[in-house]
Design a protein around this nucleic acid. Structure first.
Lengths: 154, 154
DNA sequence: TTATACTCTATAAACTCTGTGGAATAACCG
DNA sequence: CGGTTATTCCACAGAGTTTATAGAGTATAA
């Protein structure tokens, strides 16, 4: 399951996706529109800023704005930024591989084999789905690219 | 990520998969072979018993045994028994659907749409991979069915 | 210089994960 | 039949994580 934090992050990005890039939106407004507790949202936005998903402007008339167009920010990237790897075990992660303690022999580990397949399946969906999808609800759906590459990371 | 508990559960099942069904194996032995803390394992086995994955015999000469053949117990079932739904949000789960608090309009929720797709992808892998895979490591691999149905549950 | 906003650190309540001690149950033995 | 031993079953507790909240610090515009 995603954490509450990750769901908040996505909602916040949806708000920003509807605004012009480069024109900062105040935390207070994002909190209101995305229905996220304000102080908690601050932490979340900061996390995403550090990951390069958002950029911020400090001081009066400051706020947050997308770091790049909404159709270049995938669900996968957001989830990884907030909740960590998509994979179901450290040893099955591509972006944050760590050997897992249990594993006696990683090469033949039956669990790992299956979890790698699961990760690939999940990643092939989440890598190709972009934040801009939130917008195409109202407008006639913009054509979305469909699982072309064999899942790059996770 | 899977919990430690879920990984322990899989390891324990692998041990039982190598034994004759109906002949109970003591927790102590499973703990040793699967390298799981004994008392913690008790809880895990009990959980799986309640879910019908295992059956137990109490008292002297008691122990645990698979509730059905290893090729009829999927990774998905085990993970659900221990960690809950495969889906990334309650509203995207098929086996344990719950409306999620955030969702203003579930029908058009962009998050839900994507998470449903992710769930289907994950489930189509984990539903078709069985505990018996752990055995086919040593013997020449028994042919495994490959994603036939369009993912029944999750 | 002041008002406004983001940024950072500390704190706390609620919850989940991991693990443990003791009660309940069944077989064995005299 | 009744006590002893072997085993599963159940309830709880400590540690860590998640979900916030509060407030001092810092940058910027007017």
């Amino acid at each position: 399951m995603l954490s509450q934090k990750a769901r908040y992050a996505l909602h916040a990005l949806f708000v920003l996706a509807g605004r012009t890039i480069g024109e900062p939106v105040m935390i207070a407004e994002i909190a209101l529109k995305a229905r996220v507790p304000r102080k908690f949202l601050e932490q979340i936005l900061l996390d995403m800023k550090r990951r390069g998903i958002l950029t911020s402007v400090r001081g009066k008339h400051g706020g947050y704005t997308l770091g790049r167009p909404a159709d270049q920010i995938s669900f996968a990237e957001v989830i990884r930024a907030i909740d960590g790897p998509l994979a179901l075990a450290p040893c099955a992660s591509v972006t944050a591989y760590r050997r897992c303690g249990d594993c006696v022999d990683e090469e033949t580990c039956a669990i790992r084999k299956v979890l790698l397949a699961a990760r690939d399946a999940t990643a092939s969906v989440l890598e190709t789905r972009m934040i801009s999808e939130a917008l195409s609800e109202r407008a006639p759906a913009a054509k979305r690219p469909r699982a072309r590459a064999p899942a790059i990371a996770g």
